[in-house]
């Protein structure tokens, strides 16, 4: 347990250092999401006030999904330089500590993208003057992120060996995460448009999101060990 924690901390600290040194890596998905929201504004034009919440939900989550995908697909990029990834495999590292450190950094980067995206789209898309941001929405977004993160780490590890990484990642990632997108959008819709609360949602969409999150977290934790084993 002591080695586990020490390894987790060491790997996490390494990831933080690399991300910090490379501002482009976490800034570019953020800029991408800003651009996407602007594009939504241009393509939708003037919207009737009653449609604003719906537009806000659709645009925000779609933007977040795309920019998170960009960020996730690059999680293991620093490890690919100079055969660091292979060297890590020759060290007696607990695969769970390795996975958890990657998961933590993915969630941290995700929050760094998600929070400004929610804020920016409220600023640009919601011209009604009354902010749509609230705690429930933040919780939904965070739960979606927690579910997506595990899958993001695992898929990005898998794609390391593939020759068709650029096209494959989105091709597999998006269909697999449809339940998360639907849950996030429908939950937000229920809250912002129908005026429901979180406890009501737990028995439907949010419940599905939680099941998805737990299942994927466990599955990816187990499978990650398989992926870093000797060939």
């Amino acid at each position: 347990m002591k080695t586990f924690l020490a390894q987790y901390r060491a790997l996490l600290w390494q990831a933080v250092q690399v991300e910090w040194a490379n501002a482009e890596r976490w800034l570019s998905p953020l800029l991408f999401s800003g651009t996407m929201i602007l594009l939504f504004v241009f393509t939708f034009g003037t919207v009737e006030p009653k449609f604003i919440p719906q537009l806000y939900i659709a645009a925000t989550f779609l933007t977040a999904f795309f920019s998170l995908q960009i960020s996730f697909s690059r999680v293991l990029e620093p490890d690919m330089q100079d055969r660091v990834f292979d060297q890590l495999r020759t060290y007696p590292i607990s695969p769970s500590a390795w996975f958890l450190s990657k998961y933590t950094i993915v969630i941290a980067l995700g929050v760094l993208i998600l929070a400004p995206t929610l804020f920016l789209s409220d600023l640009f898309l919601n011209v009604s003057g009354k902010s749509l941001l609230n705690g429930s929405l933040a919780i939904i977004a965070l739960m979606a992120l927690l579910s997506l993160g595990a899958l993001g780490v695992l898929l990005s590890t898998m794609m390391l060996r593939s020759n068709a990484k650029q096209i494959l990642y989105p091709l597999i990632y998006f269909p697999l995460t449809i339940p998360v997108l639907l849950s996030a959008v429908e939950s937000s819709h229920a809250i912002l448009v129908d005026g429901k609360d979180l406890s009501y949602l737990m028995s439907s969409w949010l419940g599905l999101l939680v099941i998805f999150g737990i299942m994927y977290f466990t599955l990816c934790l187990l499978l990650f060990g398989e992926l870093v084993k000797p060939e």
């Binding site: 060491a10 040194a21 100079d82 660091v84």
Partner: peptide, 28 residues
């Protein structure tokens, strides 16, 4: 401990001390 050919397995974005500290911590 393995030293690969044609690669040094060092994190390019980190300085020398951080690199060594990481690998030492991983071995405890």
């Amino acid at each position: 401990e393995y030293l690969p050919a044609e690669a040094n397995a060092l994190f390019g974005k980190m300085d020398a001390m951080s690199n060594l500290r990481l690998w030492l911590r991983l071995r405890g």
